[in-house]
Design a protein around this nucleic acid. Structure first.
Lengths: 152, 152
DNA sequence: TGGGTAATCATGGTATATCGTGGGTTCGAG
DNA sequence: CTCGAACCCACGATATACCATGATTACCCA
């Protein structure tokens, strides 16, 4: 199981290429598709990312849903917005202009571990977001579901 | 396992030809019939598409249904509306006039990944549809009943 | 423990191949 | 004989593969 931790800021070159942190590449392991899968976050100015494995799993679940249901269509919309970003020989990806725009990324990209997935942010925006969340945690504390009966 | 992701807009030339995105062709792999299978969507002004494999699988399931039942007849109706669209040497298909009309396609065609299948839309119409679904997702959140992917 | 060495990783540039697109031509059907 | 559809060939743009370099890190040995 892939586990993405920590945050790494890398440079985006003039061709839109950016190195995926080596530890993230290692976490992805050897999958059918050598690269990452990315889509605009519905909630943040950021990109949600994972390996193709997760998409295949999602596709299977998708087919189990009732056709024409809202959940089914929502997931269909997700598939249509997903981008497959292959690694080049050096472990870099090319950020499509549309995705970079959604995240406001120009010079640098922050790779943010999120456990089973990771996100890509514009570093400055992420820092602000992070500070805000930390503040909330300080006020409210951190609640965790008990172990043993998954979070599903 | 075929997995169709992302959205690609290609041009329809004056002969009615349009390139199927290379990644989709790759996802189809080498099947008995080199091309795609398309039929008018029941719900949208779009075309539902897949490889011949899926139709064969559907046919098997068709046989398992009780003959003369409504479900059986519904599926029969689907088969009768299916078009086999072979690739030319460059990976293009010719959109039959009737199908193009149903989707309102003239100049351009949007190939929309839907996981195990894909759709073909008139780009402008798809954009509107996409915006509507996205809005709904933002309001309601994305529920994946069986899987539950995090906080999104 | 400290220095030296080797490996890994991020980054930059160039060359090549792929892909989408357009047009011509031949074959077959009516 | 005529029309339409499928096949073949050509081309430009773009994205991908390949190669090179500097810097940092990890490792090893003294």
């Amino acid at each position: 199981m892939a586990l993405f931790l920590s945050t790494f800021v890398n440079k985006v070159d003039r061709k839109g290429r950016v190195s995926v942190p080596a530890t993230f590449r290692a976490a992805l392991g050897a999958q059918r598709f050598p690269g990452i899968v990315a889509f605009s976050s519905f909630k943040f100015p950021a990109l949600d990312c994972c390996g193709i494995d997760r998409m295949e799993e999602l596709s299977i679940r998708h087919e189990l849903l009732e056709q024409f249901s809202e959940d089914y269509e929502n997931l269909s919309a997700l598939f249509s917005g997903v981008h497959e970003l292959p690694f080049d020989g050096e472990g870099r990806i090319v950020l499509p202009a549309h995705l970079a725009a959604h995240a406001g990324i120009t010079e640098q990209a922050a790779f943010v571990g999120q456990g089973s997935m990771f996100q890509i942010w514009e570093p400055q925006r992420f820092e602000e977001r992070r500070a805000a969340v930390l503040e909330r945690v300080r006020r409210q504390g951190l609640k965790l579901p008990p172990l043993g009966r998954g979070t599903q």
